[in-house]
């Protein structure tokens, strides 16, 4: 298994209730998994735990056969090789598109950086925008820069937190399809969190439905999403 969470529990500092309870999940290399759930179900917390932005209360997390977190160890987020696309993109406003994308490229010569920049820009189709600042881009373009930035350092796992929530419906469908193509093309193991069943269905190889910090259901999109269960109605 490429990404493995075993009996992970977690609670935020100001609450005693467990946000995540005994959560276990194994993901294969190259798989695209979507975590579906209402707000407050703990789905974003799972991403934060994998990224190393939160420290699990108990349980263990492994990526590519190395321990990321257990009772004895904790690997800091910068050492994990995990990329993340944030809900509001978190593009650094004081840097251009090129600077944003090159930010995570370390230990590379200037020429190598430039090559990598061109590569990922071609992937997301934003070559003409290198010198723009984030506020000079549309929402969809910002989204793609965020993706390019996360892909650039060649992460072993890519995490998406509600990646389409800031886009209008039409753009959402377009970018969703593009995203699936890009992810399959690069073969990066990906996990994305959403509250939208259509997103999950269109993107994922496997869907995990979460409720109150635990897994409610797992399976292929068709089998999980076609059955009736206690979820909010499918948005039209």
């Amino acid at each position: 298994m490429f990404v493995q969470l075993k009996n992970v529990s977690f609670h935020y500092k100001n609450t005693k209730e467990l946000t995540i309870q005994n959560f276990s999940l194994a993901i294969e290399k190259g798989e695209i998994v979507s975590i579906l759930g209402k707000s407050g179900s703990g789905k974003s917390t799972i991403l934060r735990l994998i990224a190393g932005l939160e420290i699990p209360f108990s349980g263990s997390i492994h990526i590519n056969e190395s321990i990321m977190a257990d009772d004895k160890q904790f690997i800091q987020p910068e050492k994990r090789g995990v990329g993340m696309v944030f809900q509001d993109y978190a593009l650094f406003p004081h840097m251009t598109v090129a600077e944003n994308i090159k930010f995570g490229l370390k230990k590379m010569s200037r020429i190598q950086k430039k090559e990598r920049l061109d590569e990922v820009l071609a992937l997301v189709g934003l070559k003409e925008y290198v010198k723009r600042y984030p506020y000079e881009l549309s929402g969809g373009q910002q989204q793609r820069v965020a993706l390019a930035r996360a892909i650039a350092p060649n992460p072993s796992v890519l995490l998406f937190d509600e990646p389409f929530s800031n886009l209008d419906a039409e753009l959402q469908i377009k970018i969703r399809d593009e995203l699936r193509t890009i992810l399959k093309q690069t073969g990066i193991t990906s996990i994305f969190v959403t509250h939208d069943k259509m997103d999950a269905r269109a993107l994922a190889d496997r869907v995990v439905v979460m409720e109150e910090g635990t897994i409610f259901r797992v399976g292929e999109p068709a089998e999980v999403l076609n059955n009736e269960f206690t979820m909010s109605p499918v948005p039209v």
Binding site: A51, L53, P77, E78, G83, M84, A90, F103, R149, P153
Partner: peptide
């Protein structure tokens, strides 16, 4: 804290 977190997932301490 999002920008800080983004930077850390991009490999910065």
């Amino acid at each position: 804290t999002t920008f800080t977190e983004a930077s850390r997932t991009l490999g910065m301490t």
